[in-house]
Structures are given as structure tokens and as C-alpha cells.
């Protein structure tokens, strides 16, 4: 794998890793919380980018794997006091197996039909889990605080979870890069552009798509395991939140569809804008007090519309188009 030595990969990893390590060094808990969320969104966006940005299959309900990973891991930790790392890996592998089983039939659907099916799968899973008693039904599950004892108490567990998300985020970025630069990745891009032509050129689309879908399931499942471990509580509406699923696609679009850096930039910018809007003071229009915190959805929507209409390629894509020479470096 000579791509492992690609300097561009190491620059991205060093930048992301370098920023991530700051709260660990300074012990800044509020920065840690901000970065946890950003890194988690980077994982979600970069992962959905593999099936959607590289392969061209719009996985609207990709959050289903985040939720499944979270539930599998949570269940093991709660009931069998399984070590977190093992529980998270089981969650990741479990979600990947589900991705294969779902992917084989569903990836035969094309375009809007596939997008709709992924929404249906997520909603079916959400409503099913809400009825599934071993997972706590609609109330969900919450930890005994003794679960955290193995990690040096609840406070240390937060740092442990943060270390975890840094590792998962870096792994996701590396995987996203290596896939894009591999022969397998070239096959995915060919499928995105024209599946039938790709098939004639010697690519087995069914197989390639399922593998891509599995990748886009594995990392979000790990992120889900971490997120709900950190929260100590998991419930269906949070685990299988369709809005968050769509937001991940918005981030991909914002940063640059099908690029490696795009989802990272998109996730960061999107999270920062939302955070800014939520904390901004309210304004009064026609005697009605309008909080930005309430308007943040509307403003996010407005920004998204502008991007979709005018900067279709996203920020990184725009750079690549505007300055073709950057194409060689900006993957």
C-alpha cells in the first residue's frame, strides 16, 4: 500500500490529530465537548460520503448504523459489563453485517428508490427498537454508574470516550482516503458516473456497492457506541434521528461531494455555524421576538439552499474547479 506513505494523507491526519490533541493537553473540558461533536460528525459525514459521494447512492438513512452500533455496544456493556473496546467492535461488526444483509437487496434499487428505501429502513428500525423490550423499548436504556468504574469513574470516562472518537475519526479519514485512491475506489467512482458502463468495463457493481456500504456502516457504528457510552443513555429517537442523518449529507454537500477533505470541512463548518446560531442573541421583527436559536434551522436551510443551487460541488469541489491545479492535491 504505497498510498499509506502518501504525504497528503499524513498532512490531513496531522492537522485533524493536532487540533484534536489540544484539549487532551490543556484539559479543557468545554473544548473537548465541542470537538467530540465535530469529530463525530466528521465520522458520519465521511462515512456516508463513501456510499453517496464515491458510489453515487444517496443513503438518506445512514444514521441507522450509528444507532445500531450504539445499541449493540450499550446492550453488551449494560448487561454483561463487556469492556468498551470489545463492545464497540461488536457494535461495528454487527452493524456491518446488517449493512451486508440490507445492502444486497436494497443496493439493487437505483436513484430515488434507494434513497427512499434507506429512509424506510431507518424508520422501521427506529419504530421496531421502540417496541423491542431487551433494548428498553421507547424509553431506551441507561447505565448504572458502576459501568464507568472500569474507566476510572464517570469523569474519566468522558476523556476515554474523547480519545476513542479521535482514533475513530482518524481511522475513518484514513479509510476514506485509501479507498478513494485505490483501484476499488476507482471502481466506485465509475459506478457513480455510469453503473451500466462500469459493468461493461469489467466492474462487478453489486459486490463493490455492498463493500462500500459496509464501510459506510462500520465507522458510524463505532461513533454511535462512543456517543451513547459517553451519554450513559440511549433512546430510539436519538439513536435513529433522521434529521441528523440528513444533516450528515448536508455536510458532505457543503464541503464537497466525493472528496476526502470535503466532509471534514463540511462537518466542522456546519457544526460551528449551528453552534453560533444557537448561542446568538434574539432579534425582534414586527414585535415578535425571534431567537436565532429557533431560527437556526431556517438559516441552516437557507445556507443549504444557496449551496445546492449555486455551489453544487461544495467548498472543496469549488476550489478544485476554480483552480484546476489544486485537483492533484485536493482529494
Amino acid at each position: 500500500m504505497k498510498n499509506l506513505l502518501n504525504p497528503y494523507l499524513w498532512i490531513i491526519l496531522l492537522v485533524v490529530g493536532g487540533i484534536s490533541v489540544v484539549p487532551i493537553l490543556t484539559g479543557d473540558a468545554s473544548m473537548r465537548e465541542d470537538l467530540f461533536l465535530i469529530l463525530m460528525l466528521v465520522v458520519l459525514a465521511s462515512s456516508v460520503n463513501i456510499i453517496t459521494g464515491y458510489t453515487g447512492y444517496v443513503s438518506f438513512g445512514n444514521i441507522v448504523f450509528f444507532g445500531l452500533g450504539g445499541y449493540f455496544a450499550f446492550y453488551l456493556m449494560q448487561n454483561f459489563e463487556t469492556n468498551f473496546v470489545l463492545a464497540a467492535l461488536v457494535g461495528g461488526v454487527g452493524a456491518s453485517i446488517v449493512a451486508v444483509l440490507i445492502g444486497i437487496p436494497v443496493l439493487r434499487l437505483r436513484g430515488a428508490y434507494f434513497a427512499l428505501a434507506t429512509i424506510g429502513i431507518n424508520e422501521a428500525m427506529r419504530t421496531f427498537v421502540a417496541n423491542f423490550d431487551p433494548f428498553g423499548g421507547s424509553v431506551g436504556m441507561f447505565f448504572n454508574y458502576s459501568v464507568y468504574n472500569a474507566y476510572g469513574g464517570a469523569k474519566n470516562a468522558l476523556w476515554f470516550a474523547y480519545d476513542g472518537i479521535v482514533v475513530v475519526a482518524l481511522a475513518t479519514i484514513a479509510a476514506s482516503f485509501l479507498i478513494k485512491k485505490s483501484k476499488f475506489g476507482l471502481g466506485l467512482l465509475a459506478i457513480r458516473e455510469d453503473q451500466d458502463a462500469a459493468k461493461v468495463l469489467g466492474i462487478d457493481p453489486a459486490r463493490a456497492k455492498v463493500i462500500a456500504y459496509t464501510f459506510s456502516a462500520f465507522f458510524p457504528a463505532l461513533a454511535g457506541a462512543l456517543f451513547f457510552f459517553k451519554n450513559g443513555i440511549i433512546e430510539p429517537d436519538v439513536a435513529f434521528d433522521l434529521l441528523r442523518s440528513i444533516e450528515a449529507l448536508v455536510m458532505v454537500m457543503l464541503g464537497g461531494y466525493g472528496t476526502v477533505v470535503g466532509p471534514i470541512v463540511g462537518a466542522t463548518v456546519y457544526e460551528r455555524i449551528t453552534a453560533l446560531l444557537i448561542t446568538a442573541p434574539s432579534i425582534t421583527v414586527l414585535g415578535v421576538s425571534l431567537g436565532f436559536s429557533q431560527l437556526h434551522l431556517a438559516i441552516a436551510g437557507f445556507l443549504l439552499l444557496l449551496i445546492v443551487l449555486f455551489v453544487t460541488a461544495g467548498f472543496v469541489g469549488w476550489l478544485r474547479q476554480r483552480f484546476p491545479r489544486t485537483r492533484r492535491y485536493l482529494e
Partner: peptide, 22 residues
């Protein structure tokens, strides 16, 4: 598809956002 899906979704966000604010 992704483009039209997100374009209409953005309108959804705007309507729901403004609606929630009011």
C-alpha cells in the same frame, strides 16, 4: 437526485425553522 432532495429539504428546514420561531 441528491441535489433535488437537498434543495427541497432546505425549504423544509426554512419552513419548519421560521414556523418554530413564530
Amino acid at each position: 437526485e441528491l441535489t433535488t432532495l437537498l434543495a427541497t429539504f432546505s425549504v423544509d428546514l426554512i419552513i419548519v425553522g421560521v414556523g418554530t420561531a413564530i
